[in-house]
Amino acid sequence: MNKRVLITGAAGFLGSHLCDRFIKEGYDVVGMDNLITGDLRNIEHLFKYKEFEFYHHDVSKFIHVPGHLDYILHFASPASPIDYLKIPIQTLKVGSLGVHNCLGLALVKRARILIASTSEIYGDPTVHPQTEEYWGNVNPIGPRGVYDEAKRFQEAMTMAYHTYHGLETRIVRIFNTYGPRMRLNDGRVLPAFIGQALRGEDLTVFGDGSQTRSFCYVDDLIEGIYRLLLSDYPYPVNIGNPDEITILEFAQEIIKLTGTNQKIVFKPLPKDDPMQRRPDITKAKQILGWEPKVGRAEGLKITYEYFKSLPKEELYKQEHRDFKEYIRKY
């Protein structure tokens, strides 16, 4: 009998890549998504496999999956500023009710569960680079608070199940990740820049562009998550690329990559936007034998080709206009 894994948020960016990986590894995969931000196009190529099944379901409600489960990966969550603006309550619910339901299911099925946390639990950090021991600097009532605090609660609830019930748990803290299947106009910096370049618009940098990010290609991230799931380590582990770059430098890289002649325009920095992001991946190296392999130049080229292949109407979806409203409001 094949091992069986439930992946929530299966139609999203990371969830769909995880489905691919586990199918490739010979697992039976149950994908679950309410499609509030996910897209069935990300997983439609999997419906031909007998090893794949899909449940259209909101994990904030009671979860029933018949049959055995060996692993659960909880990746259901909105993951961009536009999403927080549109659906703040759902964002909080999936990180509280959703994780509680997944943990309860794992307990009943005697399954190991991996929870997707994020570098956002560090807030606007006062420690750099960020280690897993750092507790963070988060504004719980700011515009990003619904996401940041949902993820922090997820971690607390997961550790409570681990210590009280003895549940096998894993926690991955994901730093900025990019690659094919990202939503082009979801407000995150990389698709925002590439979308603007493809539309012939100037690239928008918020603040003076001195804030930093560290971008990890999706294949590297999936490898790290896979290794963490199969490891014996129950505590949070940073998975990301420590190659740090300023947003201004990154905008210049995108202009060079796309061969466009757009200018860079500067706008006020959104409230609580983190000034620094760089993972300390010492634990990932020591415990998992993992570090990123794909350089930014290589990963960006693949991602740009993916975005160029999308239907032209994808360039002009409403999402990027919503992001402008987010910036105006905050």
Rank of each mutant, 00 (worst) to 15 (best):
Q318M: 15
C216T: 12
P66L: 02
E133Y: 13
V205E: 07
D322S: 05
K86S: 04
H64I: 15
S77L: 03
L105C: 03
Y233E: 00
F193E: 01
E249Y: 11
G289S: 03
L310W: 08
G26M: 00
A11V: 04
T177H: 05
H100Y: 15
Y226G: 01
H17P: 00
I121R: 04
K263N: 15
E53D: 06
G9R: 00
E305Q: 11
Y71Q: 06
G142V: 01
K312L: 13
A76T: 05
V294R: 11
Y161N: 07
K263L: 11
K301V: 15
Q262G: 13
P143S: 06
D186T: 05
L257F: 04
G207H: 06
N176A: 14
I222A: 00
Q154T: 04
D20H: 14
N139R: 09
L103C: 04
S214H: 05
Y326S: 07
M182H: 11
L269M: 10
D33Y: 02
F193T: 09
Y49R: 14
I7H: 03
T212F: 10
S231D: 08
E120W: 14
G12I: 09
N2G: 11
G145T: 10
V94M: 13
L230A: 09
L288W: 08
I72H: 10
T131P: 08
D148P: 10
D220K: 02
I247T: 11
E25G: 01
I327K: 00
E298M: 09
D232C: 07
L40T: 04
Y134P: 04
D83R: 04
T303P: 01
L105D: 01
R110N: 14
I113W: 13
E53L: 10
K93H: 00
D39G: 00
Y217I: 03
V265F: 07
L6W: 07
G195W: 11
S80E: 10
T260V: 15
T246H: 03
R144Y: 14
K50M: 11
T246K: 02
Q90F: 12
I225V: 15
Y304H: 07
R321S: 13
F62I: 14
V108R: 13
N101I: 11
T246D: 00
D202I: 00
I36L: 12
I247P: 05
L228Y: 10
V65H: 05
I302R: 07
T131E: 02
F54Y: 09
Y49F: 15
G145F: 08
E249L: 00
H56F: 13
N2M: 15
A111V: 06
D186S: 00
Y27I: 02
S210W: 09
M32I: 08
T212Q: 05
G240L: 11
K301C: 01
I43D: 01
K3V: 10
